[in-house]
Design a protein around this nucleic acid. Structure first.
Lengths: 210, 210
DNA sequence: AGGGCTATTTATAAGTT
DNA sequence: TAACTTATAAATAGCCC
């Protein structure tokens, strides 16, 4: 699918590996979602990038829902297998790998804390133009109608946009400062640097040079 | 990808839904594998067909390996699932859910495990849509193309929205805390107030009561 | 460094056996 | 029912910006 055919082996070039990861991750999640919707099945997808970042997708409310189902399934399967083993050999074998691992779960089952989960949120496409990113949130719902998960997601994205806005402002200020400085250098062609005072008050930038 | 374009909704015809499931499941697993190999990342994929059959793929030795990694990751983010209906009126006793978060609160031992879903909280305010305020800025231009004045204006508005989002989150938390407190009072009808500890980590709220 | 652009490869919907 | 076939929709590699 692309200009060249791809060999099924690790992409050695770090840059293009990263690019491919980003693209294909999106594609995979899209397809996972399509499968879930079209065929009305439960799908869970976990991806750990090489830097340890987790990307997840699930077709249900929460990933835990599917993982819990997996645990139950695995337990049943293990039980069936164990029964079969016993019938065959009439002896209790050593525990196989799967049943050993299953012991991890029961330990985690008691709950004394009060916990609230607000609908798992899986953002399929967090990337993109920061404005486009937020656009979809703005079309339909009122803040008052959003739940905690949505609010938190929105908060994150707003924060990201705010950071970009401020970054851009800084850029512009730097440009302006540079221009002023160059202008100043022209007037006072000295080897030492001028001081530039930038005053931020309201929307306008004021600058003075000494 | 095929003779006809596909609508992203459940395929109603059972036969073709099954055929599509079979085909797309294979395709999805193939792509999951490609992502894992090409980009050298860990991928786990779980699919439960509508008949409850489990199909799984993982890029590592065992699925448990990735799930364990997810659990570790989840300890930081904390994930718990919840059924919606029971929470409608605030508080439901649940003792057998995940307790991974407990490790984060070793000192917090409440008498009762309670889970709530804030998404269900009602009594919403009915103010105008604060998001409309910003809408016009998002339609046309990119941040890169805005000048300082526009950026500053946008910054202000974003900040205002952010404050509203956070206010709304606080409201929801207060509601939840109140509900928890009432539940607690029910169990311990004492005149003095319980302590409620609310932990905000990511999109989820964790609370413990002492 | 992420977004847009094709030329190509892939996936697959529908049809056929 | 599942295995092929084929026309077409989708994904995406390599580029450019």
């Amino acid at each position: 699918m692309g200009r060249g055919k791809v060999q099924l082996k690790r992409i050695e070039d770090k840059i293009s590996r990263q690019v491919t990861f980003s693209k294909r991750k999106g594609g995979l999640m899209k397809k996972a979602n399509e499968l879930a919707v079209l065929c009305d099945v439960e799908v869970a997808l976990l991806i750990f990038s090489d830097r340890g970042r987790l990307y997840e997708f699930c077709s249900t409310e929460s990933l835990e829902e599917i993982l819990e189902r997996y645990r139950i399934h695995a337990e049943e399967e293990a039980a069936v297998r164990k029964r079969a083993e016993q019938e065959k050999h009439g002896v209790v074998d050593h525990k196989d790998k799967q049943s050993q691992e299953l012991q991890l779960f029961p330990k985690l089952r008691s709950n004394h804390g009060i916990e609230m989960n607000l609908a798992e949120c899986t953002d399929l496409q967090t990337s993109g133009n920061p404005l486009q990113m937020i656009q979809r949130h703005l079309d339909t719902q009122n803040i008052e109608l959003k739940n905690m998960t949505e609010l938190t997601q929105l908060e994150k994205e707003m924060d990201a946009i705010l950071r970009q806005i401020r970054f851009r402002k800084t850029q512009l200020m730097m440009d302006a400062a540079k221009a002023v400085h160059e202008e100043a250098s022209h007037r006072h062609p000295k080897p030492w640097t001028s001081y530039i005072i930038i005053c931020l008050a309201g929307p306008r930038i004021k600058m003075a040079m000494m």
